[in-house]
């Protein structure tokens, strides 16, 4: 299935991309996506513990199961306000 990844702030800078499309197996979770992403971009590994996730613009747990076409956000700790 196809998953649309969105990266922000420090993560976008590390990867060099804001949007990435990934083809993954059915039943994949956010965790699976992140593991694959870190495989491609090892420099992100140092940030793994601080990562916050969203699925279709709602905060989500790493264990959330994904569906075809879902948009997954990989977010650094927020610093707005």
């Amino acid at each position: 299935m196809r998953i649309h990844l969105k990266l922000f702030a420090t993560f976008r800078e590390v990867v060099g991309e804001r949007d990435i499309v990934m083809e993954v197996g059915a039943g994949s979770t956010v965790e699976d996506i992140v593991t694959e992403l870190l495989g491609k971009y090892p420099r992100l590994k140092a940030h793994r513990d601080s990562m916050i996730y969203s699925v279709n613009k709602e905060y989500a747990d790493p264990g959330a199961t994904l569906s075809d076409g879902d948009e997954v956000g990989i977010l650094p700790p927020v610093t707005g306000g």
Partner: peptide, 14 residues
Amino acid sequence: ALEEVKRTVPLWKK
């Protein structure tokens, strides 16, 4: 509301 914005809204200041 300000504390909620700081805590939960996906915004980043660099």
